[in-house]
């Protein structure tokens, strides 16, 4: 699984991840304090500029944002038809700006530094005994490790159906897929504990 991080070296990459995340949070709040077309359009232009600065090829840059922009545009059209044009434009500019800045942060922060930031954020919770901050990285690693295996298993179950002349349905595949996958949990947990990854 390839992350959405873009490997170039721009000013935006060199900013600290925390600065970028705090800035994104500040922008997302600030956008909801104004309804001025001029301010919002300027913000959207700034967002587009920062996203272009990341250095993605234009086609890839657009392709990445298309699904999110499609939902924003659909809701804008809905607003235009059922509410007011003003509401539609304000909402379109706000969310598009937010999308562009968010995509910029995603493209310039590596998965590892993201996990570091989330771990740091979870430290206070750790003191309360709610979670163990280091588990976040472990869980992320486990998911990335097991997704391909689950896809292989899904294909194998489909083939087993085909070989027996059975119709492949949602249900006949899902139950064995879940049981086969979760049955590994004990062994994986034992392996993690044996290696002392969680220091217990």
């Amino acid at each position: 699984m390839k992350s959405l991080y873009v490997e170039t070296n721009t000013i935006l990459h060199r900013l600290s991840p925390r600065t970028k995340l705090v800035a994104l949070a500040a922008i997302s709040v600030a956008l909801f304090f104004t309804r001025s077309y001029v301010l919002l359009a300027a913000a959207a232009a700034a967002g587009a500029f920062s996203y272009l600065l990341v250095g993605l090829p234009i086609r890839e840059a657009l392709r990445r944002l298309l699904p999110v922009f499609a939902t924003i545009a659909a809701v804008a059209v809905f607003n235009f038809a059922f509410n007011s044009a003003e509401e539609a434009i304000v909402m379109l500019l706000r969310l598009t700006t937010l999308m562009l800045f968010a995509a910029t942060v995603t493209a310039t922060v590596t998965v590892a530094s993201f996990i570091d930031e989330i771990t740091a954020l979870a430290r206070p919770l750790e003191r309360l005994g709610v979670v163990r901050a280091a588990d976040i990285g472990l869980a992320a690693g486990l998911v990335i490790r097991f997704v391909p295996e689950i896809l292989d298993r899904y294909a194998a179950i489909r083939e087993a159906h085909a070989a027996r002349g059975l119709k492949v349905g949602f249900l006949t595949v899902l139950a064995p897929l879940i049981i086969l996958t979760l049955r590994d949990a004990d062994n994986i947990a034992a392996a993690i504990d044996a290696r002392g990854f969680r220091r217990q």
Partner: peptide, 22 residues
């Protein structure tokens, strides 16, 4: 995983931009 920039949602969607959508 979505937030840290992995394309794990259907259609390969991911990243913080997903949370900007309506």
């Amino acid at each position: 995983l979505v937030a840290i920039g992995l394309p794990v949602l259907s259609g390969g969607r991911g990243g913080l931009a997903v949370f900007a959508g309506p």
